[in-house]
Design a protein around this nucleic acid. Sequence first.
DNA 1: CGCATTTAATGGACTGAGTCAACTAATTCG
DNA 2: CGAATTAGTTGACTCAGTCCATTAAATGCG
Lengths: 305, 305
Amino acid sequence: MSNLSLIETARDFNRFYTNFLGLLNKAYLDTPFTLTDARILFEIGSHGGISAVALARDLQLDPAYLSRILKRFRAEGLIETNRDPADLRSQVIIVTDQGRETFEELGRRSNAQIAARFDRLATGEPEAAVSAMHTIRALLDPAAKPAPAIIRAHRAGDIGWIVQSQGRFYAEEYGWDLRFEALVAEVAGKFLANFDPAKEYCWIAERGGINVGSVLVTNGGDGIAKLRLLYVDKSARGLGLGKLLVDECIHFSRQKGYRELSLWTNDMLETARAIYVKAGFRLVSEERHKMFGPEANGQNWVLDL
Amino acid sequence: MSNLSLIETARDFNRFYTNFLGLLNKAYLDTPFTLTDARILFEIGSHGGISAVALARDLQLDPAYLSRILKRFRAEGLIETNRDPADLRSQVIIVTDQGRETFEELGRRSNAQIAARFDRLATGEPEAAVSAMHTIRALLDPAAKPAPAIIRAHRAGDIGWIVQSQGRFYAEEYGWDLRFEALVAEVAGKFLANFDPAKEYCWIAERGGINVGSVLVTNGGDGIAKLRLLYVDKSARGLGLGKLLVDECIHFSRQKGYRELSLWTNDMLETARAIYVKAGFRLVSEERHKMFGPEANGQNWVLDL
DNA sequence: CGCATTTAATGGACTGAGTCAACTAATTCG
DNA sequence: CGAATTAGTTGACTCAGTCCATTAAATGCG
């Protein structure tokens, strides 16, 4: 459950942008086109040779309504439709030269409108606005293809991110109190303070510039490596990132000459446990505790390398 | 004249957001309200006692259309209208209890919808989206007054946020290495681990659901309070938040019976120094160091309480 | 293969959101 | 005071968008 004030702010923004777009779209009234007309013409103009169903699907329009609009466009000579030889029920819609002219004119007007808006801004401000638009779109547009995840070493801010994301996650999901975040901060802070690149490492999984997972290997002494703070964000579950991160740890620990890789976890973390089991870890001990408020079952797992 | 590709991107975003809002607004169809109805009800519900002209102006509606909608609302018992004693042509519109109930129900649905959208995002992503919305709005809405900042105690994730934001900021701005983030993690982690509410506190400045600043008071023993980790995010500078946070620390330290408030800072942080000077802190010592890579000038400041 | 089902496209019939013009009543301004 | 303006309302209308039924092609299944 997201913070309520975030949601309020988002609603507020939506109200604002509804108005803002409303104003922009009024401009279409200076042409004989409605907003829907313009959207359709734009869609046909960009993907040449689209079918009516596809159009209706993409723009969420009623097929009957769309059919009428296309008929009008055809009558006005803006588009041509031909039967699709591959499926004679379907038709292929293309813009005529005149249609392209109209389409481009609409584009020019729309551009001019935004340019007018941007012209009132200070140097650098349009860039800031557009960059913010990118951010929103990448986050809210499911069709904006999710960037592939990469795994890399930690850098500035990452350790803080680990503390924040896990602190928040365990609080929201399991009701753990701030003692848990304190523990994470201590573990992660010590890792950073005493970081020994020869024996230790931190992996961050990142997607489109946003951190989505992490794990540490720290030196426990006596040839024992410790896997700590494994975490994969909600948004990136099911991609096998957890397994990937654990595999990195195992590979690294072997390579650095450790004889054993151990970890501490809690039994309600079932996905994590499945990963450990599959990787060959064995459960060596278990104890109930209330370290972070609610009762939980702590477990120690070990993998012989 | 703005760069064309910026404009194209902005148009692209507008198309996307038109769709996005369209989807969200479909939900109003589950209620007997249209989007316009909902906007009107929202507007009346928020500013109690508004007049019809003001409403028509703010929402850019036809007065005739608005009049009819208000008539309907009146018939349904959602609002009451009384003549404005100051101008008998005008009327004062207020929501009835039932209207308020409806208004709040709409709000809850709208919230739930956005929450559902946000729930699919990663930790920090809703914040990123909302922060981008702020950016756009601040730039495009001439009437936008920035959301007021509030100051509150820390909760889950905040300590991690402190580590992350400062770790990243000092690395980007001054080239400090990870030893700095390690120090922050240690300080913040210890604060959380040994937190003594009777003598210590953490303040988080938040604006529209986004953390934008922080400061801690920790117990240094011997009647000395320590002000630590003062930070105000770039996006919220110039609002006096730094001063506000420091004032909180001073007030708290006095109230808890400390005799002295001390802090350590570096001299390139000029805004912070100005705040300390103004608050009455005096510089007691100074030493050059390379604790975090680049050479810097560490300073100890003290305020007698 | 043939029959039932699904899908693309369209026309008929309708609804209701939003617009425009005309009017009343109160207010302001010269 | 009278002319012009403003707040609000009603009547008459338009047209964007929806729902249902129909045709023709395609697909699925025994």
